[in-house]
Design a protein around this nucleic acid. Structure first.
Length: 210
DNA sequence: TTATAGATTGCCT
DNA sequence: GGCAATCTATAAT
């Protein structure tokens, strides 16, 4: 099970990390930390599952039909949060990739909780009893669950720079490297459903279900 | 102006 | 395993 290797040395990711193609970024993000900072609170999770979404050549991507007010962040500078509401109930968090003007992103599908689990449970409306045993996966295993755990919403976080040191939502590298990575087709889509663009840390219990 | 599908989740049988 | 919840971007009248 992944552990922080050097929490003191954790640092924001570099901008050029996100200047590459989404599949590369999706794979490279595994093992990095997603952190929500609030007054007196420190919520953190290790990224264990991602999916890459490309540009107009990817029918499943929001950028497939071109630029709209909704997906404008995808065409903006790399390393920024693209948050949208799905099924009227859940928010999904993505990070933009590639240079300004070129669409592409990575969807965060699951985290392994590292810090602030009690606060996450509160946001998820789970009681302390449910934190134990296999139920702990209900905290952050799934794109809608992890956003709720970290109180991520479109209104609050869409367009936010995830690499700014002062940001209350950011990505950090603490030096951890996953041992084994698996690649599978993306989940929950109907278009281009066969393309292997889902990346996960093999055997990690916080990966979302198939 | 109205209809429909959607990068999900949780509760039901 | 089935399906309702609940909103909005986009397509179809």
């Amino acid at each position: 099970m992944p552990r922080p290797t050097c929490p003191v040395c954790a640092r924001p990711l570099r901008r050029d990390f996100f200047l590459r193609e989404p599949p590369w970024v999706a794979r490279a993000l595994l093992g990095k930390l997603l952190v929500r900072r609030e007054p007196g609170k420190w919520l953190a999770g290790r990224i264990v599952e991602t999916e890459a979404y490309l540009g107009q050549d990817d029918p499943a991507a929001h950028a497939a039909a071109g630029r709209t007010p909704r997906n404008a962040v995808l065409y903006g500078p790399p390393g920024h949060a693209y948050v949208y509401l799905i099924y009227g109930n859940h928010f999904c968090l993505n990070v933009s990739c590639l240079p300004e003007g070129v669409a592409g992103c990575v969807l965060f599908r699951a985290l392994e909780p590292i810090a602030g689990m009690a606060e996450m449970a509160h946001s998820r409306k789970l009681n302390q009893q449910q934190l134990w045993g296999q139920r702990v996966c209900l905290l952050t295993s799934g794109p809608g669950r992890l956003t709720q755990a970290l109180a991520i919403t479109r209104q609050r976080d869409n367009g936010k720079d995830l690499l700014a040191a002062h940001s209350d939502l950011l990505l950090l590298d603490d030096g951890f490297h996953p041992q084994r990575i698996s690649v599978t087709p993306r989940i929950g889509i109907t278009k281009a459903a066969e393309r292997p663009l889902r990346y996960l840390i093999a055997d990690n219990p916080f990966v979302s279900k198939r």
